[in-house]
Design a protein around this nucleic acid. Structure first.
Lengths: 217, 217
DNA sequence: GACATTACATAGGAGTCCTATTTATATAAT
DNA sequence: ATTATATAAATAGGACTCCTATGTAATGTC
């Protein structure tokens, strides 16, 4: 029983829990998990097309179409013509949609609490692991491209000597550490393939304990 | 934007992906994610009641009842009387159910591949983080008790000097390391509350880097 | 201009998921 | 013993998820 199985198992259990806790919230918000995801996505990233939304939440286009129809019926979303393409539809959150979204959370407080109870080093290591897994899945085409440091053109891993803040973000022009790696950065811009691959190598080959073990100098 | 948010975000994304990939498998197996979960649970843990199954997969009892009915209809499950309680029902997998379950996986190969691409230290750290989160959720009553080392009466954390294999399992009477922590051990037996709390403290307070940094001696 | 492609909608159907309620049994309190 | 209460599961009803398959319109290609 290799540890990768245990890890997959753990992720699975947390996934089950997350989905269930979203369902429990239906009576407060009136939105199903799928609907919440769509609304939050549109608010975070701006107006978008149905196909793109479907890909984002990993369902087929008709399923997304269904959920969008429900949101429109509830007055939380508005369909607008896309000036760039007369077939397409741009989904805009309405004022009511924005209002409701404030009370919407994709993850429950008890999960945040549990994560906060980890030591800082543990959080950093966990985030690093998740980052690598997500980037790998993305690389294999199993999930859509994420707005993560790992694939961003502004990301320069291991750019600094200081083991506390080895990475650098060219966008905000600042050094940062493992614990500040982002998975959903608003300023993300995809790096060209070759540069991305090189930066990723740099990041991935780093020893897991970089932030603890003093570097030989 | 604290890292706990990024971590929750990452877990969320992986959860979305996991659920979607289970749906993609429907055409092979003929089973929905919920049905797969139930069948696999019963095979792994033996016959069980509907209420228990519902709790395990984090749905309400009527939902579990629905899914079980579908499985019975498909000939993969059999309902039997519970000799201990005439109201209750014991669910047994049929031979066909066991056959089908062999081809059923709760997690897709590409996820296992992604996890395997982590360095051993990274895997251990990730597993440790997941373990702590799951145990915390369990402690808060947000998820049912898991068959994990962290709550097992045979688990003796940090029992050994060797930083590679600090923990000890009294059941198999062997030392093991972070990477071998289990989340679904078949031999799990719940520890009495006080002992469990003590063992947990021992485990939780360990420095994250135990397996790397040489201990002062 | 014909042909394939793409964006979305719709239809049809099994299943998920909930709350509320019913039926039967078990347990507790009188 | 006899109610009263609690529990295990089934059922009803309804919104929604999720799929495949297909239709409709607009776009891109040669």
């Amino acid at each position: 029983m290799p540890s990768s199985t245990q890890i997959a198992n753990g992720l699975s259990k947390l996934g089950t829990f997350l989905r269930a806790s979203q369902w429990h919230r239906v009576e407060d918000t009136g939105l199903t998990p799928t609907q919440s995801q769509i609304l939050l996505h549109l608010i975070a990233r701006g107006a978008d097309r149905i196909t793109a939304v479907a890909e984002e939440i990993a369902v087929t286009q008709p399923t997304a179409s269904d959920a969008v129809a429900a949101l429109v019926r509830k007055g939380l979303l508005r369909k607008a013509n896309d000036p760039a393409d007369a077939r397409a539809v741009l989904l805009h959150p309405t004022a009511a949609g924005r209002r409701i979204a404030k009370d919407l959370a994709l993850w429950p407080d008890v999960l945040l609490g549990a994560v906060d109870s980890l030591l800082p080093d543990e959080q950093a290591a966990l985030l690093r692991g998740l980052t690598k897994i997500i980037r790998d899945l993305q690389h294999q085409g199993a999930i859509p491209v994420q707005r993560m440091c790992a694939s961003c053109r502004f990301f320069r891993p291991s750019a600094h000597e200081n083991p506390e803040t080895p990475h650098h973000c060219d966008f905000v022009n600042a050094a940062f550490g493992e614990a500040r790696l982002r998975l959903d950065c608003g300023d993300h811009e995809a790096a060209p393939p070759s540069a991305a691959a090189a930066a990723w190598q740099q990041f991935a080959d780093q020893k897991a304990s970089t932030s603890k073990a003093p570097r030989p100098r």
